[in-house]
Amino acid sequence: MDKIYAHPKSLRDVSTHYCPGCGHGLAHRLITEVVDELGIREKVIGVAPVGCAVVAYEYWDFDCSEAAHGRALAVATGIKRVRPENIVFTYQGDGDLAAIGTNETIHAANRGENLSVFFINNAVYGMTGGQMAPTTLLNQKTSTTPDGRCAQLQGFPLKISEMLALLPGVKYIERVSLHSPQEIIKTKKAMKKALINQMEGIGFSLVEILSPCPTYWGLSPKPALDWIKNTMVKEFPLGVIK
């Protein structure tokens, strides 16, 4: 009998600190599967964010760096320019990439840095206690918007992928989701494409991943996936943006 689904070699066999049903564990695993399939484990350098995934380097069994909050793309730019032979990616949440790190994100994209970005959008700040993020949906309840996000007070959900797609330096942007096995397969394909783009020198590639945060959405894991499918996808439509 053959093992048709095995633990990826680049993923350490340890328990993660993530909550039950959290999308980070899934996204971590998909990245390691892609790294194994491309055979780039000795060449890849990941840059971890600040947020729930701050200790991602404890789970990935390849070279990693850690960046100050929001500055992952600035750190990755430095690494890639000094070591162009390495494959450099950043892994950032919505608070990291689209709030405190908006500046670094936009300018790295505008410079057309040859990097791959994995952007986890779960519409909430997970690590700090479920506060409103720039990507929080209208009427979504968080600990800082107890009556739901109101456009007049807090503005609209920030669509950073669509904004970045306007920049000539950006070569590939796709929005994917983790809400079903089919979508998980699409997510893996998009991740692979983002890394292959970098290996071929094509340029800045970003994959936005809609990911569940059951704890701060106040839902059980399965209803959290349904919430992505029925509600979040309407605000953040899936597909290739550029």
Binding site: M1, K3, I4, L11, H24, G25, L26, I184
Partner: peptide, 19 residues
């Protein structure tokens, strides 16, 4: 049936599939 959907969706990589 060895479809591996459980392994695909497991966020904690707890499932391995043999076929």
């Amino acid at each position: 049936t060895g479809c591996a959907m459980c392994a695909l969706i497991c966020p904690d990589c707890c499932i391995e599939v043999y076929r």
